[in-house]
């Protein structure tokens, strides 16, 4: 029997890897993929607790997280395309239009 704690530790590991990706990479597309990793880690937590409490709410929440992830990916990739067209770069540290 795999305990709920094991699922939580796996989710924490995936979450941390995603955070490292967001904080260290320069390529915006990889930063987006790291955000997907973070959302997946959250989903594992929700489904594990759904199993633990024998209740459906966790799975419904995970479903909504997947919906929001899809919307976020569509809008984010649209932003990347618009950015690339205007600035000719997809490196996060070269995009400093808001820097004063």
């Amino acid at each position: 029997m795999v305990g709920t704690g094991d699922y939580l530790i796996l989710a924490a590991a995936l979450f941390t890897i995603g955070v490292i990706g967001v904080l260290t990479r320069r390529n915006i597309i990889i930063i987006f993929m790291s955000i997907e990793l973070i959302l997946n880690a959250v989903n594992i937590n929700l489904v594990a607790f759904s199993m633990y409490w024998q209740h459906f709410t966790g799975q419904i929440y995970a479903l909504f997280v997947i919906t929001v992830a899809a919307a976020e990916a569509a809008v984010g990739l649209g932003i990347i395309i618009a950015l690339f067209r205007n600035k000719e770069t997809i490196n996060a540290d070269e995009i400093d239009l808001l820097k004063w």
Binding site: T67, V68, A70, A71, E72, A74, V75, L77, G78, I79, I81, A82
Partner: peptide, 14 residues
């Protein structure tokens, strides 16, 4: 509704 807004937003942005 969020998905609808995302579709329109993605089309406008790209």
């Amino acid at each position: 509704f969020l998905l609808l807004v995302a579709i329109i937003g993605a089309v406008i942005l790209a």
